[in-house]
Computed example of a mutant assay.
Amino acid sequence: MTDSVHTVSALPTARRSGCPFAPPAELLEAREHGPISRYTHVGGRPGWLVTGYDLVRSVLADPRFSSRKELLNVGDFEVPPAPPGEFLLMDDPEHRRYRKPLMGKFTVRRMRQLTERVGQITGDCLDAMEKAGPPADLVAVFAKPIPSIIICELLGVPYEDRGSFQEQIDTFLGGETSDEDLIAAYTATQQYLAELVAAKRARPTDDVLSDLMDTDLSDEELKGIALILLAAGFDTTANMLALGTFALLRNPDQLALLRSDPTLTDSAVEELLRYLSVAKTFMRTALVDVELGGQTIAAGTTVVLSYNTANRDPERFADPHALDLRRQNGGHLAFGHGIHQCLGQQLARVEMRVALPALLDRFPTLRLAVPADDVALRPESADIYGVKSLPVAWDV
């Protein structure tokens, strides 16, 4: 009997020229063959690639699939457990122990209370951008500073340390550095956070990290939590702001629609999150044999979940490759699903809802300052997709 299941030999490393927002063509082709494909991990172990919306969502909600780092079965080598506090790579009850003290800090209500502060920071960035005049790199003057300042204030990182932290995060998440430089950046960040935790322990201030000093979490665990929050709270939103602006500038009809109807802001943010899916893939390992999409996933097998193809699944989203700011059928997986759904999703939404309209309102003639094909994109190997720089101009 012939095995009719589609096979993907390796995750694609590039997107098609002229299609910076669409997933790599090979992933879209895999989805066309069905929601699940055979896959061989870089380390040589057989696995599965899940590209369909319903199956990705079901794996994320299924406790039979583990997030534990040490269970990743991708090659003929052992993977160490996640360091203390880095709860994204853990299962309950360890995951719950770290996440629970944070949940009250990132509620919808508390994040909305930050709207005014996000507006102030955005205004300061736009003032500086306007004063300096065109052209400008929107990544450097807008997309990075806003989430960087906000997450640093939430965690109590001194303002003067922001630049160094930003550079280190860029280095180990950007996908374009040597192993030596990556390790050096990660080590430097760990050292800095250890010193920050010690400072908060000695003299707490009004911030999330200081609040956690009243828990039973050790300094080593607090350091890991701080790393997760800093990296996730900065890098993902920074890339959504920059790549989202790029997408709007490349879809002038949708840009005009948003400018003419501010009530579309919320749906526009959700549609950009779906359309761009900057957090592209995650992995889970089967704890037992699991039937998935008509296939048996053997216990111990690691599956790759493709968020960007799931969010472009035609069985879930009509005309999925179109950017449609009026789209009403939400439920995208940009923030994941299940117990590991992004803790800071409401913060990201507030930042996008405030910053993007403010940018478009301040600069009504905003446009790319280089041909679209010359915009420098992050490689597909980066943990978070986005643009490295976005040169823009406007009329003065």
Rank of each mutant, 00 (worst) to 15 (best):
D3N: 15
T13Q: 13
T13Y: 00
T13G: 15
C19M: 12
F21N: 11
L27P: 03
E29M: 00
E29V: 01
S37F: 06
G43V: 07
G44M: 09
G44D: 09
P46L: 08
G52S: 10
L55G: 05
V56F: 02
V56W: 05
R64K: 06
S66V: 12
S67D: 12
R68L: 09
R68Y: 02
K69D: 12
E70H: 14
F77Y: 15
F87G: 03
L89G: 05
M90V: 07
Y98T: 13
K100V: 14
V108K: 14
V108C: 00
Q120I: 03
T122W: 02
G123C: 01
G123M: 01
G123S: 15
L126S: 07
E130N: 05
P135D: 15
A143V: 02
P147A: 12
I151N: 10
E153T: 06
P158Q: 11
Y159M: 05
E160N: 12
Q166H: 13
D170Y: 05
T177W: 01
I183H: 14
A185R: 09
T187S: 09
A188R: 13
Q190I: 02
Q191M: 04
L193S: 01
V197A: 05
V197K: 08
A198P: 00
A198W: 01
A199D: 13
T205C: 08
S210Y: 06
S210A: 11
D214A: 15
I225D: 07
I225F: 08
L241N: 02
L243D: 03
L249F: 06
D261G: 03
T265K: 11
D266P: 04
A268Y: 08
E270L: 08
L272R: 13
L273K: 09
L276R: 11
V278K: 13
V288E: 15
D289W: 05
G300C: 11
T301I: 08
T302F: 03
V303R: 03
V303Y: 01
N311W: 11
P314V: 09
R316K: 14
N329K: 12
G330I: 03
H332C: 02
F335S: 05
G338H: 07
Q341L: 06
C342Y: 02
Q345G: 03
Q346A: 11
L347A: 03
V350F: 04
E351Y: 08
R353Y: 00
V354I: 14
F363K: 04
T365E: 00
P371V: 10
D373C: 06
A382T: 07
G386D: 06
L390A: 10
V392Q: 09
W394I: 01
D395K: 01
